[in-house]
């Protein structure tokens, strides 16, 4: 068991290394100094107190979407609709935060939960189609992502657009719905703490509860599940609901805790980051926390990279892509290790 964990960790670390290596080669070819670029990436992720907070803020939604993706992958579903669920979650949270009048605190909590509910509802359609009719969830996920993004554009640019704002965004939510900062000295939203707890709870759910046990059995071997009278359909449905709820919270936490409004295309791809996080965490929910820190570093570092060194922030997508490709071939490293051993 421990050997397997170590092998997983080694595979992910090698993949990350290859990701940066290939990134460096591309930067070199394009005429940049890769060490300088990576230096400015790290610097703008951890260089001072302010950017470190930014990094942690970026980590917050990734933990939610990472936990959501882990649940999916554990049940052997390849639903990659977290980006859409995140946007829908941001809309429902915003609507509750903007339209309802509730006492402070309670308002934030209700709006936050509404965000989760939005993501959950958005997962209901593909979840039902998959559970009931076996309709391929990967394809529906992508379609729903685009629908959600365009719909959110409609909300931010049209339906609730704030004409006085200098950037494309909606009106602000009511102050009562704002998720407070941990303290004036640490202006990090309490949403961060909730995200950490949610990730750990996902681990607990998977490994210590009946639902989690059934999710893992269905994911590993649906035939056995059938014989053991575990309903595959309702397990899938549950996964879609819980996972959608988590992904929706990712959007809610950004609206209520960071922007206090929906900013046009505010997510640089937190839903996708969650998928990468789940894959490099090898679907271990507890490893989502370090994995999302890593991706948050890329995210917040990429801004500095762009501003400071003039490299498009999409460079981190290149690195992420190479990491995923390298992480998908654990066997290559085993073969390589064997070969090296044999040569000695």
């Amino acid at each position: 068991m421990i050997r397997e964990y170590l092998r997983d960790a080694a595979t992910s670390l090698i993949a990350i290394l290859i990701g940066f290596l290939v990134g460096a080669i591309i930067l070199q070819v394009a005429g940049y100094d890769p060490l300088y670029i990576y230096g400015s990436l790290i610097n703008s992720a951890f260089g001072n107190y302010y950017v470190t907070l930014n990094t942690l803020t970026a980590m917050m939604p990734i933990m939610f979407t990472g936990a959501a993706a882990t649940l999916m992958f554990k049940s052997a579903l390849f639903f990659i609709g977290m980006e859409g669920q995140l946007y829908i979650g941001s809309i429902t949270a915003f609507l509750v935060g903007h339209l309802l009048q509730l006492p402070a605190g309670l308002h934030a909590i209700i709006a936050f939960l509404a965000g989760g509910l939005g993501g959950l509802l958005w997962g209901l359609v593909p979840g039902y189609l998959r559970a009931r009719f076996g309709v391929n969830e990967t394809v529906t996920a992508i379609m729903l992502n685009w629908i959600a993004i365009h719909f959110t554009d409609y909300i931010t640019q049209y339906a609730f657009a704030d004409p006085k704002a200098t950037i494309a965004r909606t009106y602000k939510i009511l102050p009562t719905a704002v998720i407070p900062k941990i303290s004036p000295e640490v202006p990090l939203s309490w949403g961060f703490v909730v995200a950490v707890i949610a990730t750990i709870l996902t681990g607990y759910l998977l490994y210590n509860t009946v639902i989690g046990y059934e999710i893992r059995v269905v994911g590993l071997n649906p035939h056995v599940a059938r014989v053991a009278k575990i309903s595959i359909e309702s397990t899938y449905l549950r996964v879609f609901l819980i996972s959608g709820f988590l992904a929706g919270l990712a959007g809610a936490t950004m609206v209520l805790g960071v922007f206090n409004s929906i900013v046009y295309r505010f997510s640089p791809g937190y839903g996708w980051d969650g998928i990468t996080a789940a894959l490099i965490a090898r679907n271990n929910p507890y490893m989502i926390i370090p994995a999302s820190l890593f991706l948050a570093v890329l995210r917040s570092g990429s801004i500095g990279m762009m501003v400071g060194a003039g490299v498009s922030n999409e460079m981190i997508l290149v690195i992420q892509g190479v990491i995923l490709i390298s992480a998908a071939v654990p066997e290559a490293y085993i073969l390589l290790a064997r070969y090296v051993k044999a040569r000695r």
Partner: peptide, 20 residues
């Protein structure tokens, strides 16, 4: 390789490298 994950990687890589 896990074909789906390699595919995801190519998508990220593609979006990224073209923009860069």
């Amino acid at each position: 390789a896990d074909q789906i994950i390699v595919g995801m990687g190519i998508i990220f890589f593609g979006y990224g490298i073209t923009a860069v």
